[in-house]
Nucleic acid binder design. Structure first.
Lengths: 347, 347
DNA sequence: CTGTTAGCGCCTTCAG
DNA sequence: CTGAAGGCGCTAACAG
């Protein structure tokens, strides 16, 4: 069963037709209309013989390898990459394409060039480029000429379609959730890197407050590196204030984890005395904290799938898809509700 | 640069030789000895033209696709899969092989069959099968005939080479670390599933105690599902005893996370009042707890690489490698030291 | 509607 | 030591 020794010729012979006809039937070539019974005979012969086309021969002949490359950062460190891969994988299978994945270093001079070259050498028809956090990148020069789509990043030159998370929307969902639970003093533990997420989540935060006529207190907006320890430190400061916030919106789940520790040390019960919302939905953290962390999920799976779908359109020469390069597509960041948000005690 | 339009013929022409010679030079065919200067001319021509062989044509001709399939569980949920992928990827590149990755459901009747078939349809030469926790599996029937290697699991039938973590060794490293820090009352928060890791880590635990003439107190060995919450619960019970252990060896990092919470609630300082060692080295947890969790790393990267290397040998028909199927190869689980182990306070 | 035929780019006997 | 020629399995003109 494993060794594919049956060829199109065998099918032709068994069905009593020529290989051409078999080819036409099996690929149902548009203009070539084949008699219904012939077609049935061919189909049956193929099935009983367990025929499957030899992709290599097909590829050679049609000059389409059926391979698309996925260049991804940090495959080994975050489950985010896994989600992108899975989304891309499933979409690829849908289109009968095969995904070839290559890990790439985040910042390393020409190594991207080499990784792209490895993919080109393997005859990929197109490439996906995935970063692990939302940012701008410049593409390796040898990618010129191959259709490409960016995942979780945008192209400096603006010539390649890109898909990114809707950071503003995610922040809006998070803060709205807090406001609707009754909170009015909401702290924001923001990242301090100059990346889109930092700015856009802040925009979302402010937008919600504005919408609900809650004055923006700049004192409640603090920044630090987006890690657990700095998150802990700034959370502690914020919560030590006499007019401490009743809720915290955290740039990511790691900072939220730090906030949990701060709350704990200060004897504040979550969600009773303090509500917390994170960002990223890192299951390993969010689901294992006490109580479970309500957080915003990043659409990694969806971005992977979107990217492949777009690539397919590009491959089909539907040029209108190139226009997508102008403005990145933004995908929804849904709120994942666990147990870290409650009604403010005193209000 | 991206479109590969230069063929072997162009190289031949430029070098003033026949395609045969070019082929011989570029593949340095064993018996075909080519004059040194001819060879140089060919090499140079190939380089200046930017020639690279068309893998599809090569594959068709040699009947070797250069593709190997990696069937992996839970690509999207744990970084473990990412590590395996990376290890396999790098090894594959070393051997000029291309990895095709397919996600597969853990338990789902015939879906494995279909996933394997998808790989076969893509003409993979061999397949790797990776599970996300160490256990026994039975292979899909259509895998028969293809070389295969198991990662993190063993074959019920015992006909396929397999590589697994050295659980006993990992446990020994962990508990030894604790004993050498001065601990003699060491609790073991074990998993309660009937999987190899449960039994083997216990073996390692007991072995170390025996080695150091520390009596085994069965009361200190407790079991629960290997999640944070159950870990918390049994840790709490254990730590509430008047003769509580001074150290805890936890089946995995999630249980250790639960133990941290228990310690915290009981006012026990880590590592001052209580030392903890985990297992898995889930960075997201281990590196983000306070203090950082000392834990045992699983050799996922190494298993991925080992599997590909073994596959290559199998592919080369080195039958002695088939013998590997008899006993799974065990790879080292190194201890990763962070900050959760200290000297016992009272002793 | 169906069949014949010519390659896709490469490797590989077999002759020189 | 080098070259000519056949064919891997399939698709796509082009004929019938």
């Amino acid at each position: 069963m494993a060794v594919r020794n049956v060829g199109i010729r065998d099918v032709a012979e068994m069905a009593g037709v020529s290989v051409t006809t078999v080819s036409h039937v099996l690929n149902d070539t548009p203009q070539m209309r084949v008699a219904a019974d012939t077609r049935a005979r061919v189909r049956e012969a193929a099935k009983t013989l367990g025929y499957g086309p030899n992709r290599m021969a097909q590829a050679l002949r049609t000059n389409r390898s059926g391979l698309i490359g996925l260049l991804s950062e940090e495959i080994a460190t975050t489950p985010h990459a896994g989600r992108i891969i899975l989304g891309a994988q499933n979409a690829a299978r849908e289109h009968d394409l095969t995904l070839v994945i290559v890990n790439t270093e985040r910042e390393s001079g020409d190594s991207h060039r080499d990784d792209v070259q490895a993919l080109i050498d393997r005859q990929v028809e197109a490439v996906l480029y995935a970063t692990m956090y939302h940012r701008q990148v410049s593409l390796p020069p040898n990618l010129q000429g191959l259709p490409a789509v960016l995942i979780d990043s945008t192209d400096k030159a603006g010539i390649v379609p890109a898909v990114v998370p809707d950071e503003v929307g995610g922040a809006i969902a998070a803060v709205t959730h807090l406001v609707e639970a009754g909170h009015r003093r909401i702290g924001f533990l923001n990242n301090d890197d100059d990346v889109p997420a930092t700015h856009e989540r802040l925009v979302g935060y402010k937008e919600v407050l504005r919408l609900y006529d809650i004055p923006i207190d700049e004192q409640l907006i603090v920044q630090a590196p987006s890690e657990t320890l700095p998150g802990y430190e700034i959370a502690r400061e914020l919560l030590a204030r006499h007019d401490r916030p009743t809720a915290l919106f955290c740039y990511n789940d790691r900072m939220a984890m730090g906030a949990y520790r701060a709350a704990n040390e200060l004897g504040l019960d979550i969600p009773h005395d303090l509500s917390i919302v994170g960002f990223d939905n890192q299951e390993l953290i969010a689901a294992n904290l006490f109580p479970g962390l309500t957080t915003v999920a990043l659409p990694h799976y969806e971005m992977g799938a979107w990217a492949v779908d777009t690539l397919v359109h590009l491959l089909h020469g539907e040029d209108e898809y190139k226009l997508l390069a102008d403005t990145p597509t933004r995908l929804d960041c849904p709120l994942v509700i666990r147990g870290s948000v409650g009604t403010p005690r005193d209000n």
